[in-house]
């Protein structure tokens, strides 16, 4: 399974704000059993938000910089994510320097927040160190244009 926890970018404003979504399916292997059935692990909901933020900086820098997670000040879970839910991620930049950034963000399902993270700190590193630029460009096109990744 690919570690891509974002399917579409719905809006973005360079170095300021981004919204994105991820659909979930019972066919995915990431679910954990809970009292009321399968649920998405806390860390993967957080990862969906972090990947959304990472894409904001990839897009804002012409794919030159990718965010690497350094830490997070506070994360709180407010609800569960079930198979079939659509996650909507919204992230705002609250601090930006040449090689680092800080974001706050929320993951929601059907308009209700399920996870809120504040003080997501990331290093903005050379994207070519991590992935082939051509693959990054194809992924960006798919996320923005709606074609399958």
């Amino acid at each position: 399974m690919r570690f891509h926890l974002i399917d579409r970018i719905e809006s973005w404003e360079p170095d300021r704000h981004i919204t994105a979504r991820k659909v979930t399916s019972v066919t995915e292997t990431t679910w954990r059993p809970g009292p009321d059935g399968p649920e998405l692990p806390f860390g993967l909901a957080l990862e969906a938000l972090c990947q959304t933020g990472s894409w904001l900086f990839l897009l804002s820098t012409g794919h030159r910089r990718r965010a690497a997670l350094l830490g997070v000040d506070q994360v709180t879970e407010y609800g569960r994510v079930r198979p079939g839910d659509t996650l909507r991620m919204s992230a705002d930049v609250v601090g930006r320097h040449e090689e680092a950034a800080v974001l706050d963000g929320t993951v929601s399902v059907d308009g209700r927040p399920v996870l809120r993270a504040e003080g997501i700190m990331c290093a903005l590193i050379d994207a070519e160190r991590l992935d082939d630029p051509a693959d990054t460009a194809r992924m960006a096109e798919a996320l923005l244009g709606g074609r399958p990744v």
Binding site: F42, G43, L69, L70, G71, V72, D73, Q74, V75, T76, E77
Partner: peptide
């Protein structure tokens, strides 16, 4: 897990 404070990597 329901909350995290000051996580650092």
């Amino acid at each position: 897990l329901s909350g995290v404070r000051t996580m650092r990597f």
